[in-house]
């Protein structure tokens, strides 16, 4: 198993280098000249050229790419943001905890609430509990996040005046962003869990367990649940990986300074160091989350573990 993990870590580095290459190339071809943005409109042509020279923007593609890769991976210098004038890593690390916390809370709540709801719906299949829950889940999944956010703000901040609408001062500021982010998560998890449970419940080994005289409670928790949870882990992992950078909407609406807003702003101002380094960090986190998810998979499903061990050793176990 350790060999497998080491292999994955090695792949991670390759993924990062590949990501760096891709984002560099993409930003190279995107229209928008940093010189135009950074300098005032009255700057002369020579001044613009001088600015570009200083930033190395007038060199050829290969030279710029080489310089960038060298700087990032060998010197581990992730650059200074042209817009924020602070080292990119510093800015990211000051914002990361917030985004991280928001994502984590949202995902955990989404799982903790959504999974039991899904199981409950599946066990009461085709009865009113199931139908109600699935309708609500559909609504939850279809609602655009920003619309929900604004609706909640109008209700709780304007009409009821219970909660503050923006900022990051106190715990109260987190309530609405968390609720907004969790709704979609609960809905997705409930739907997935329901279908996963339904599939598992029909399995032969559940009949076997019942035929053995296992009480229904144990059938659900000991036999069905571990099997039904397997697909969900993947989904939750993917949700987490995506949400680190994907909370842009929430951050925008609630003035929640996180990684998403930072990246968005950097893209608008063509702040190349910030964009490249942010994307790298996001890629890193996503890859790590995926690795953790795969390891959890292996711990739960022995078939997967065997697969990993086999691939780590390079031959199949008889």
């Amino acid at each position: 198993m350790w060999k497998y993990i080491l292999k994955r870590v090695a792949w991670l580095l390759l993924v990062l280098v590949g990501t760096a290459f891709v984002i560099f190339t993409v930003m190279y071809f995107v229209p928008g000249d940093p010189a135009d943005i950074a300098l005032p409109a009255s700057a002369t042509f020579e001044e613009r050229q001088a600015f570009r020279n200083e930033l190395g923007l007038n060199d050829s593609y290969m030279v710029q790419l080489g310089r960038y890769l060298y700087k990032t991976f060998i010197k581990l210098d992730f650059g200074t943001s042209w817009t924020y004038n602070v080292p990119v890593m510093q800015e990211l690390f000051s914002r990361m905890p917030r985004t991280f916390m928001l994502s984590l809370i949202t995902i955990v709540l989404g799982a903790v609430i959504g999974i039991p709801l899904g199981i409950y719906a599946a066990l009461h299949q085709n009865r009113w509990q199931d139908h109600t829950m699935m309708v609500l889940a559909m609504v939850g999944v279809s609602m655009p996040e920003f619309w929900l956010a604004l609706m909640l703000v109008i209700l709780f901040c304007l009409r009821l005046q219970w909660l503050p609408a923006f900022g990051i001062g106190s715990v109260a500021n987190w309530v609405l962003p968390v609720i907004t982010g969790t709704v979609a998560g609960i809905a997705k998890n409930a739907r997935q869990m329901r279908s996963s449970t339904l599939e598992t419940v029909r399995s032969d080994y559940i009949s076997t367990a019942r035929a053995k005289g296992v009480p229904e409670r144990s059938v659900i928790y000991k036999h069905m649940l571990p099997n039904a949870l397997i697909p969900i882990i993947n989904i939750i992992g993917a949700q987490f990986g995506k949400s680190i950078g994907g909370t842009v909407v929430l951050e925008s609406v609630f003035t929640f300074p996180g990684v998403g807003l930072f990246l968005l702003n950097s893209i608008n101002t063509r702040d190349l160091p910030a964009i490249r380094s942010s994307v790298l960090i996001l890629a890193f986190f996503t890859a790590v989350v995926m690795l953790i998810v795969d390891i959890i998979y292996a711990c739960i499903d022995p078939r997967i573990k065997a697969q990993y061990v086999a691939s780590g050793k390079g031959r199949r176990k008889a």
Partner: peptide, 26 residues
Amino acid sequence: EKEMLEIRGNKVSMIFQDPMTALNPV
């Protein structure tokens, strides 16, 4: 149901058709 739990697997047992899926994989 409680009394049936005593019977199942104990007094009366059942073997199912497809061995490939009859056992809990985890």
